[in-house]
Structures are given as C-alpha cells and as structure tokens.
Amino acid sequence: MPRQHPRLAAVATATAALTLLAAAPASAGEPTVSDPRVVAHFDFAAGETPENIALEPDGSADLTFAFAHKVVRVGKDGSGPTDVATLPEVTDPQTPNLGAAIATGIARAHDGTLYVGYATGTAETGIWRIGPGGGEPEQIAQLPTDTFPNGLALDEECGTLYVADSARGAVWSVPQEGGEPTVWASGPALAPSPQLPFGANGLKLHDGAVWVSNTAEGTLLRIPVEEDRTAGPVETRATGLDGIDDFAFTGHGDTALAALNTDSKVELVRPDGTHRTVLTATDGLDNPTSVAVRAKTVHVPSAAYFTTPNPDPNLLLARISKNKS
C-alpha cells in the first residue's frame, strides 16, 4: 500500500496553512479525560487503518479498516482484531480525491446489524449491510459515483440512515431497509474547499438534530430535524477545529470530543463552541479518526495516515468523568 494517498496529501498540504484557535482552559464541572492507554496496535502496511468505530454491548469495538475495506472487532481488553466482514474488491476504483476504495463510517442497530459506508467511485459506492454475526455484506443503497460517503448514523425510530458526503458537501438520508438515497441537507456550510476537497465528514444524531463536522472549514455544525423530518437551518456550533474528522458526545448535553486527525489531538468542545485539548500524540494518538464514548470510557481509533517513518495505527482507551454535559 502506498505510504501516502491523494486524499491524505491534500489534507496535509491544506492544514499546514491553517491557524489553530487558542485552546481555552478547563472549566469547573466539565468532563475530564484521564488514564489514556493504547490497547491494540494494527498493521499499516496491510491497510489496517481504523477509520470509524461502533461499540458492541460488551464493550468491544467494531472498526472499519479503511484501506483493507473490512470490518473487524477488537475486544475491550485489546484482543483481536477478528474479521467480521470484508467489502468486495473493486478492480478500478475512482474514488473522488483519493482513487482507492475505502471503508468509511459504521453504525450498529440494536439487533447487531452493521451498516458501513464504502467509497469507491464505482457502482459499489454506497451503504452496505452486514447481518448480526458477520457474513457476506449486502449493498442496500447505491450513491452516485462522484460522492464520498463518510460519517454514518442510524435513527432506528424512524428507520433512517444519515450519511455525510465529503465530496459533494451534503448529508444523504437512506431508508434503513435499503432503497433510494435522498439529499437531506446541503449548502456552503457543508461544502469542501478548493484547498481541501473534504467537506462534511463526521456525523452523529444527538438531541433532535444531525451534527456534522466539516474538515475543510474546521467546524462543528448542528442541523435540526424538523417535525416533518426535513432539515432545518444549519447552525455553526464550533470553529477552529482544524483537521477535524469524526466526534462523539460525552453525555446528554452538547459537550463533544472531536478527533483532530492531522494534529493528532482530541479536543473537548464545549456547548459555547470553545474547546481545549484533552489527548495528544504523547498519549498515543497517531492521526485519530473518530471517537466513541460508553459510560466512563472513551475509545479513539488512530489511522496513522500521515506518520513516517513508523506509523502506529491503534486503538486508544481513556477514562472520562461522569458529567451531565
């Protein structure tokens, strides 16, 4: 596998010119992150670059390995990885801004069904379903070949999957049972830029809204879900998050932990948009791609996309204090 991919080169070049927002100091009563430790290391040369994460009830992690285009499971003690499913080979991928087929976002239904995004630039681009227990993936929705499906979240109550499209700068909705995708939200706030062709990236459902990160703009956005299930006006909730990939909320409030890929940081983002660094490369991060929070544990996969000469893709766990925010 090549050491650097077109997507990664574009990100690295663009973010070098960006200016970081000064981190605000810790505030009383907000969550704290401590005791970071890397529990699993992966093989960069084999394409074991963890892109996204979903948690199992027992605390194990389902990870998409981007360039190996597969889903694996890692035990909460770091055991594994165990293969869950592999997406089909694509003979001539034409993935926008990249040219390589990659597995992207992952979401888990309560019955154990997994949904995975696949960006290929071919007819295989779209959302794939993996039944409980693994097995052969099935494509349930085909997205246009010029899209880049990335962050993914499932609203089981309404039977809808939401998909961030990094190439077109949009959010798609897809029926959970499969079918025709629909552009649910779009506009300048979600768009990529000429300098950095990756816009809408991470995506989460939280408190009646679809939240999306925009890598090109370094922003965290909130899109209200209206009563008729259409998208409300896009709200910018945080800026200065250069190199932001995916994110997760720490509780019922709007405090989030955001993975800053190129800077190998995790930022705690407060409801007022200010943020501070809580994890860095010295803790073991190596280009983190996503975050998951379960009870008192934070899970952070790193893909080591930009690290030379010794990339260390891994899974890091840390402790988070219990807090209503």
Rank of each mutant, 00 (worst) to 15 (best):
V74D: 12
V74W: 05
G75T: 03
G75F: 04
G75W: 02
K76D: 13
D77G: 13
G78V: 08
G78S: 10
S79V: 08
S79Y: 00
S79C: 05
P81F: 01
P81T: 02
T82G: 07
T82F: 11
T82N: 12
T82P: 02
D83Q: 15
V84P: 04
V84S: 04
A85E: 11
A85I: 08
A85C: 09
T86P: 00
L87S: 08
L87M: 10
P88V: 13
P88N: 13
E89F: 10
E89W: 02
V90C: 00
V90E: 12
V90D: 12
V90R: 05
T91D: 15
T91Y: 00
T91M: 03
D92F: 03
D92C: 00
P93I: 13
P93A: 05
Q94P: 00
T95F: 00
P96S: 09
N97L: 10
N97Y: 08
L98P: 01
G99Y: 06
G99I: 09
A100H: 08
A100F: 13
A101E: 04
A101T: 12
I102L: 15
A103R: 03
T104A: 10
T104L: 09
T104H: 00
T104F: 00
T104E: 12
G105Q: 03
G105I: 11
G105S: 09
I106H: 01
I106E: 01
A107N: 10
A107Y: 11
A107V: 09
R108S: 02
A109D: 15
D111L: 14
D111K: 13
D111G: 11
D111Q: 14
G112V: 12
G112C: 14
T113E: 05
T113N: 10
